[in-house]
Nucleic acid binder design. Structure first.
Length: 431
RNA sequence: GCCAUGCACCUUCGAG
């Protein structure tokens, strides 16, 4: 059963299971794991409910399965139920649920689980520590991630990688490079995960010197040279650093490419003002996802081809690609650049039709809301801009800046100053 | 029989 499950022959696993005259908890857990691993979540749930004597491992398989399939809230809920039904939690339980918290980007729940972990009898080893570092990192709690890291007695490569990624994703990216140096100084080995994160940090810093150094390490090592993610990171790094020729060289020598590789090149061409090349590569892409569409739209708006961006949006809707906050950001940007209020209002309708149905609130709401404010301001409609501002569920620094600047540039000096005062009163710090 | 890490999409301003 386990063999078939691991090989992906879920049907065969199930057949053997069904024919077994006797089963024990190991049998059940094997099938359960197979179902979860290959995405048969409903079947797994059904089986789980039918297990006569569930044990800790059965619960762990559910939690981990949910987490790996991206059903993070189910994973946490399952963990809580497990807790309530009096099952003890071990490293497997905590590892899985922490990864679910990371996926939810919910530091509050994560910290609560952390509390449970500390009180539990679990060994606070390198697995738990690394899982905590990663969880805090994904939740944007850089200080907490760092604290856990510093308090660990024993670290391994995953621990270091998690901290590097933490700084790469939350900033400051320069700290990612510093941690990388520390890692080497302490004599740790690195791997392709380390290098991909570091290259990515170089990309955000436009640190082409450091990026080239890593690239030199990569070409000397067969395993690194064959790694898709690492190569993708290199293409992105050279693109962002403006070296489109080398980006293309890496691209063309890759043993394998995917949608991310091609999207990175599209962005690179757009950035290098070769928006023609961006468009033709986009047209030849084997597989497109919404990020690819967004990248080309951004490319068009960056190069003043706003009408093309708009028609790309229309095309995208026909192709049934599901828009994201970036899509609407680009759309509104195009309208703002054209300073065309009618188009802008139409775009606003598109946003509303989508019901602000983004994956996780409220950041995308703020993001799109800010883009709306900016669009209305650039189109000269201060009333509409202010209406959006007033009705936003949440506001951030950019929202305030957008209204203040918008008022100022439309000749409403008094109102701009008034908004500034209100900004101070609201507790938002000006930059 | 169950656990942790990596890649792509310029929302505001100024300067150029």
């Amino acid at each position: 059963v386990d063999m078939y499950g691991k090989c992906g022959s879920v049907n065969d696993a199930r057949k053997v299971f069904d024919k077994m005259p006797q089963r024990n908890i190991f049998t059940y857990n094997s099938v359960l794991g197979a179902f979860m691993r290959w995405g048969f979540v409903d079947e797994a749930k059904e089986l789980f409910d039918s297990i006569p004597d569930r044990d800790q491992c059965s619960w762990n398989s559910m939690v981990s399965g949910f987490a790996q399939k991206g059903r993070f809230e189910d994973a946490v809920e399952c963990f809580v139920r497990m807790c309530r039904e009096g099952f003890g939690m071990n490293e497997y339980s905590f590892g899985s649920v922490l990864s679910a918290c990371a996926g939810l980007m919910d530091g509050k729940i994560g910290a609560q689980i952390h509390g449970l972990l500390v009180k539990s009898i679990c060994e606070r080893g390198v697995y738990m520590g690394s899982a905590l570092v990663d969880m805090y990192a994904k939740c944007g709690e850089v200080e907490c991630a760092r604290r856990v890291f510093d308090e660990m007695r024993i670290r391994n490569i995953v621990t270091w990688n998690s901290l590097i990624t933490c700084y790469e994703q939350n900033g400051p990216a320069s700290e990612a490079l510093r941690v990388f140096r520390d890692m080497l100084d302490e004599g740790f080995d690195l791997d392709e995960v380390t290098l991909a994160s570091v290259v990515s940090a170089c990309a955000t810093l436009s640190g082409i010197r450091e990026g080239r150094e890593i690239h030199a390490l990569v070409v000397k090592n067969d395993r690194y040279r064959a790694d898709l993610v690492l190569n993708n990171a290199l293409v992105d790094m050279y693109s962002k650093c403006g070296d489109i020729k080398v980006a293309r060289f890496v691209f063309e020598n890759m043993p394998l490419r995917n949608v991310i590789t091609e999207t990175s090149m599209v962005s690179g061409y757009a950035k290098a003002a070769s928006v023609e090349d961006a468009g033709s590569l986009f047209g030849r892409m084997m597989e497109k996802n919404i990020v690819s569409w967004n990248a080309l739209m951004a490319g068009y708006t960056q190069n003043g081809e706003n009408e093309k961006a708009l028609s790309l949006f229309r095309l995208l809707k026909r192709e049934s690609a599901w828009p994201t906050d970036y899509t609407f950001g680009n759309l509104l940007n195009a309208c703002a650049n054209l300073a065309d209020l009618n188009l802008g209002m139409q775009a606003h309708t598109d946003v509303m039709k989508h019901g602000f149905c983004f994956r996780s609130a409220p950041e995308p709401h703020v993001f799109v809301g800010n883009a709306l404010i900016d669009m209305y301001m650039k189109c000269g409609s201060v009333q509409d801009a202010f209406w959006v501002f007033r009705n936003m569920v949440e506001r951030d620094l950019v929202s305030w800046n957008a209204v203040i600047v918008g008022y100022a540039q439309n000749g409403y000096g008094i109102e701009a100053l008034e908004m500034y005062k209100q900004m101070i009163l609201s507790g938002e710090k000006p930059d």
